[in-house]
Computed example of a mutant assay.
Amino acid sequence: MKIGINATTLLGRTGPAGFAEHAVAAEQAGFSSYWLAEHPTGGFDALTVLTVIGQSVESMELGTAIVPTYPRHPAILAGQALTTQAAITSKLSLGIGMSHRVMMAELGIHDDKPIRHLREYLDVLMPMIETGRVDAQGETLSARATALSRPDVVPEVTVAALGPQALRVAAKYAAGTNLAWCGPKTIREHIVPTITDAADKAGRPAPRIIATLPVCVTDEPETARAKLTENTQMYMTLPSYQAMFAREGVETTGEFGMIGSEDQVEEMLADLAATGLTDYGASEFGLNSDDRARTRALLSRLAKAAA
């Protein structure tokens, strides 16, 4: 299991230059990848920031985890991703997802057939990314377009998928899935077997399975879990995550945290790797600067060992 950094917790606390500085430090520390999420109404464009980061990062993979699909036409998103890839030397991983109904409602968007949307989105996005041409006619999404130019290496596409139908669509069209708030039990018993079986049936390569979870090395684990719950419990209200929380058998987001001493966190990460996960996007946090330094030191050591 490769170890990267998910820097989404820095949203609202820094700008493009700050993210670039943070990403350079992550590359120097040995992390394999660097991920940013995009909140649909947050006034933040992840691909633009990754383009800025890519001017300073040499080889560490850069990725979105994730860009919501509904606000952007897939041909437009493909063009932006191709442009970003052409502007950077690192590999770009374009993680997309349908986000959440409550968030889309803030934009006046409603869709009662999300799986149809996802299939039609990928019917446009994937040909445009992979070949530079698309001619697709769907019920809600269509495109006839040709890319004016394409980089020699094109971005990889992953799909945020939790339910069985979405996982099967991800397996058929994309390189894999990009997860948040999925614990080891859910990944091992649901995500990995469902998407792997679907990819095999579709004649596709073994899927990439990327997951972001909070991590903290600390001497005060209970306090850290309480703080994590306080800051993130709103995710428990989102229906798509609620199903995953039920599968995992947890009642608070704090229970997802990989929190404890160096030895305890290392053991938790080993258990996570044993689920079949290919990539871990560490969401670092801490109660103080000492916690943050210890967390980064442990993750850096493990990332270098996994490289």
Rank of each mutant, 00 (worst) to 15 (best):
Gly79Gln: 03
Ser59Gln: 15
Gly138His: 04
Ser56Glu: 14
Glu120Leu: 02
Asp111Asn: 14
Ile66Met: 05
Ala78Gln: 02
Ile76Met: 07
Met128Ser: 06
Phe44Thr: 12
Glu58Tyr: 08
Leu47Gly: 11
Ala46Arg: 00
Tyr121Trp: 06
His22Ser: 14
Pro68Leu: 00
Pro114Cys: 12
Leu122Glu: 10
Asp152Tyr: 06
Leu94Glu: 08
Val24Trp: 06
Leu141Phe: 10
Asp45Thr: 12
Val67Ser: 02
Glu139Ala: 12
Arg101Pro: 01
Glu38Ala: 09
Ile129Thr: 05
Asp112Cys: 08
Leu94Gln: 09
Thr51Val: 03
Gly43Pro: 03
Pro151Trp: 00
Ile88Arg: 06
Val67Met: 00
Asp135Glu: 14
Leu50Gln: 10
Thr84Gly: 06
Leu77Met: 10
Val134Pro: 01
Leu47Thr: 12
Ser90Leu: 00
Arg72Ile: 07
Val52Met: 05
Asp135Met: 02
Gly108Pro: 04
Gln80Gly: 11
Ala29Glu: 03
Pro40Gly: 13
Gln85Ser: 03
Leu107Glu: 12
Glu106Phe: 06
Leu50Tyr: 08
Thr83Pro: 03
Thr83Tyr: 06
Pro40Asp: 13
Ser56Met: 09
Ile53Met: 11
Leu36Phe: 09
Thr131Trp: 00
Thr84Lys: 01
Leu107Gly: 13
Met126Ser: 13
Leu148Val: 15
Gly138Pro: 02
Thr41Gln: 12
Arg133Phe: 12
Pro40Leu: 11
Asp123Ala: 11
Gln28Ala: 15
Val124Ser: 05
Gln28Thr: 15
Ala75Met: 07
Met103Thr: 14
Ala136Lys: 05
Glu27His: 07
Glu120Phe: 03
Gln80Cys: 11
Leu47Asp: 07
Leu36Trp: 07
Lys91Asn: 11
